[in-house]
Write a protein that binds this DNA or RNA. Structure first.
Lengths: 156, 156
DNA sequence: TATAATTCCTATCGAATTAGTAGGATTTTT
DNA sequence: AAAAATCCTACTAATTCGATAGGAATTATA
């Protein structure tokens, strides 16, 4: 499961993708209240996102955070790696965080590894496609579908 | 990432799928040595697998563990759920372990949830297909491929 | 130029989880 | 009766998670 940190990070990023028109900074406390995230915890999270180059900030009285990249360039895979580490379920199939399984007898012929290698490839593919833009778009789609269902079609 | 417990469990199960001819029990200490798993830890793991109905055991001098189901019937998804809980990355897209995200504002229109729902579906599908039989078969396939590469084809 | 409001940053903390270990009870074969 | 295996409960050290505290630095504005 995702850590709360990662979940909060994604929610904050999506919020910024929606809110910040023309890149105007949004205050931490505003994001925290809107997204039900503990203020101080969010502070630490946004800081890390800035260090990772996804966000930028302005200090002082009119300060706040805003996206450093476009919503198309920020994806869930990168956010997850930043806070939770590898997406792979086994260290021996991770790409950036590769590590041999200590108990492993023969990595090359390991059927377990083969399975988890496939799982990782599929998952990474899907999570890279999950950009902030894609998430916002999906949400819009869901809203439309629901309002369509609530207003039943007129009789002929 | 998988816990060591889950990894050990899978390795032990695959070992049993390979070793136990005609369902003869295999001793814990033998599995532990062969698969590089701490003896006492493995003891606890096998016990859980028995309680879950995947293994059975015989006590006493000629005792040990053996598969309770066929290698086709035991899959990685079930083992992971047993030790690590849900396969879903968000509680709100888990099936058996469903839980609302506390911070969530509207589950129905959540684009994040939509993405992770897809990821879960794909992952579960792959992990259910990953039976002990499939894993052993993949391993055999890999062995053959390697030996083919080492003996280069004869000249015409 | 003071001050109010914001981010920046380090340190700390309690609770939960992980990865085991200890030790003896129970069961079965010889 | 002894040997050898599983069964079962309890414990523990180390790490991670989810946060909080408190103040330094920065910036707009009265």
């Amino acid at each position: 499961m995702l850590s709360k940190k990662t979940k909060y990070a994604i929610n904050a990023l999506v919020y910024l993708a929606r809110q910040s028109k023309d890149g105007e900074p949004v205050q931490i406390s505003r994001i925290a209240e809107s997204e039900n995230i503990p203020r101080k915890f969010l502070e630490a999270i946004l800081l890390e996102l800035r260090h990772a180059g996804m966000l930028n900030s302005r200090k002082g009285k009119t300060g706040g955070y805003y996206l450093q990249k476009t919503p198309e360039e920020i994806n869930i895979a990168d956010v997850m790696r930043l806070f939770d580490g590898p997406i792979a379920l086994l260290p021996c199939v991770a790409y950036k965080y590769y590590e041999r399984c200590e108990e492993c007898i023969d990595e090359e012929t390991c059927g377990i590894r083969s399975v988890f290698s496939d799982v990782r490839a599929q998952t990474v593919k899907m999570l890279k496609g999950a950009t902030l833009a894609e998430i916002v778009s999906r949400s819009e789609g869901l809203k439309k579908e629901i309002s369509r269902r609530k207003k039943p079609p007129k009789k002929k």
